[in-house]
Structures are given as structure tokens and as C-alpha cells.
Nucleic acid binder design. Structure first.
Lengths: 155, 155
DNA sequence: ATAATTTGACTATCTCTGACTATTATATCC
DNA sequence: GGATATAATAGTCAGAGATAGTCAAATTAT
């Protein structure tokens, strides 16, 4: 009991009570718990995997971070609804890409399909003033998500 | 920790919101951010590369400058070029669907992928005044076509 | 015993700088 | 007016520093 991993999991989940998405420094967190940094990876891999409904994004180097995004959906609402909700009326490219990656990891789409989704919502594709891009990206992504799930039902 | 590189990227992108092309002085920008001039090159190389849809031109010596141009589309193979050409700057939904169907017939994309393309360029997805829809649809479709052919090259 | 956890050594990636190089414009000399 | 020197830019590259990732061995829990 009170395994280190459990404590770290608990700690992260408390941080996420407020927001469905947090960013942290792997090394800082490790130091906080007085453990090896790789311990953090272990916790993320075993308790915050896609199967558990989370998406992990990270960046190395100066200013690096680990971002944890909660993707679980309340029972009663479908995954599609959760995703549509997350997309909302406006979404930036990075988050849209994370959703495409999520779909791929969950095997809801193939790799090529994920790439197509990314292409459709990339900043290249949406040639509009930046402020409007996020809004349009959301609309395109919502439509594609709906299509993805329609395919699944039929298949 | 908004990294220096991120700040500079942001700064440049704000400058480019208005125009698809800007000119700046490398040294001035470096001074503005209190960093080494070569830092500017780093940001340009990592965030404004051709892959990111930008072209960099520059000139040294007195009155030198760095010009950043936002590309409208990358180049590709010849069928790709033909298709891109057919798409042009503006395309209606029916024609876009025809191209998706063509890709499927040619086995360049799977059925699901074709459906995804149709979803991305559908009237529903592109929530804009009718006049602008065709233009935007063309941009999205061009980007997706480019992605399709990129997949083919790698596969 | 078996499975889960924890660590540490090694690797990969990203950022930033500084020394050195290349190019262009302008001033100066004849 | 042309050649040459000087100043004003920008480019390149290797290395240091700052993070995060991986994986297998050691440890601990069940």
C-alpha cells in the first residue's frame, strides 16, 4: 500500500480535478517525490495510458514538459460526444493533432486516416486569419469525427 | 516557461497575421529578445521551414533583411500536381467529392479515407459564407491530397 | 513464485550561444 | 569611373545545457 506509484497517481489525479488537462515537469515531480525521473514515466504508462482514457504529450529540452489530457467520458454519453465536446467551437492545431493521435492509438482510425485528419485541420489547409482558423478547424474536425464514428457503426 | 524560441515564433506569427509575407532585421529582432542573432536562425529553421509551409529568403550586407513568406501549397508528384491544379483556388462540393471518388477508384485511398475526405470538405464542415466555402474547400482538399501522396511515397 | 514497482545508466531531443564565415552596400582612393 | 577597403548584415556549425524517454536489472509486494 501507499506505493510510490499510487501516491504519484493520486497526486496527478488531484491536480486534474480542476482541469481536464495539466502540464508538469517530469524532473520537478520526481524531485517532489524523491524518486527517479523515470518513475514518472512508469506511472504515466501504467495509469494514464490511452486505455485509461488519457493522452500524454511531451517535449524535451529546455522548457520541456509533460502534458496529461483526460479523455474519459461520463457513462451515458458516447465517446463521440466527449470528443465533440472537447473540440467545441474552436481548437488549436496541437490539440487537434492530439485527438487524431488518440483515435489512432485507440485503433479507431488507421495511421493514414489519422494523417488525413491532421492534414485537413493543419494550419496550411485553413487559409484564414489566425483567429478564425481555430473556429473553422473545430468545424472540420467535428465533421470528420462524426464520419469516423459512422464508419465504425456500419463496420 | 514560455521558451525563447516559442516567444519568437509567436511574435513572428503575430506579425504575419496581416500579411502573408514580412521582412525583418535579424539583429534587431535578436536584440529585441536579448538573444544571440543565430537564435533567430534556429527559430526559422525549426518553425518556419518548408515543412511548416514557409519559405525564407534573406540578404546580407547593409540594408540586409530576412523575409518570411507563407506558402500556399507545397509541390509534389505529377498526378498530385494535376489534381492540385484541378482543385485550384476554389472548388465546389460536387467536384471535390468526385476527386475523392477518383482517388478511391484508383485505389489511392481506402473507402474510409475517401469518406473522411468528403467529410472534411463537406458543406457542413466549412462554416463560412457560401462564396468563401469553395475557396476554403480547395485549400483543405489540396492539403489532404498532398498528404495522400506523401503516404504513397513512404509506403 | 509471480507480478508490480523502482532505479540508474544510457539515449534522444530541444534550446541557446559564440566563434567563424559569407555576402552586400558604401565609402575612399587613384 | 573603377578598384579596393570597410562596415553592415546574415549564415553555419559544433558544443554545452536542459529536459524527457527507454530498458533491463534490482527490489518489493502479493
Amino acid at each position: 500500500m501507499a506505493q510510490l506509484s499510487d501516491s504519484i497517481e493520486q497526486f496527478i489525479k488531484e491536480l486534474m480535478e480542476e482541469d481536464a488537462q495539466i502540464e508538469l515537469k517530469r524532473n520537478e515531480l520526481a524531485q517532489h517525490f524523491g524518486c527517479a525521473p523515470s518513475q514518472i514515466n512508469y506511472v504515466l504508462a501504467t495509469r494514464f495510458s490511452v486505455d485509461h482514457g488519457y493522452i500524454i504529450e511531451s517535449r524535451r529540452g529546455g522548457g520541456g514538459y509533460v502534458r496529461i489530457v483526460r479523455m474519459t467520458h461520463p457513462s451515458g454519453s458516447s465517446l463521440l460526444e466527449t470528443l465533440l465536446n472537447r473540440v467545441g467551437n474552436s481548437i488549436d492545431e496541437e490539440s487537434a493533432n492530439a485527438i487524431a493521435a488518440f483515435l489512432y492509438e485507440r485503433k479507431l482510425v488507421t495511421k493514414n486516416e489519422a494523417l488525413l485528419i491532421k492534414a485537413a485541420v493543419s494550419r496550411n489547409a485553413l487559409q484564414l486569419p489566425v483567429s478564425a482558423k481555430d473556429v473553422l478547424r473545430a468545424a472540420v474536425l467535428r465533421n470528420m469525427l462524426t464520419q469516423v464514428f459512422r464508419n465504425l457503426e456500419e463496420g
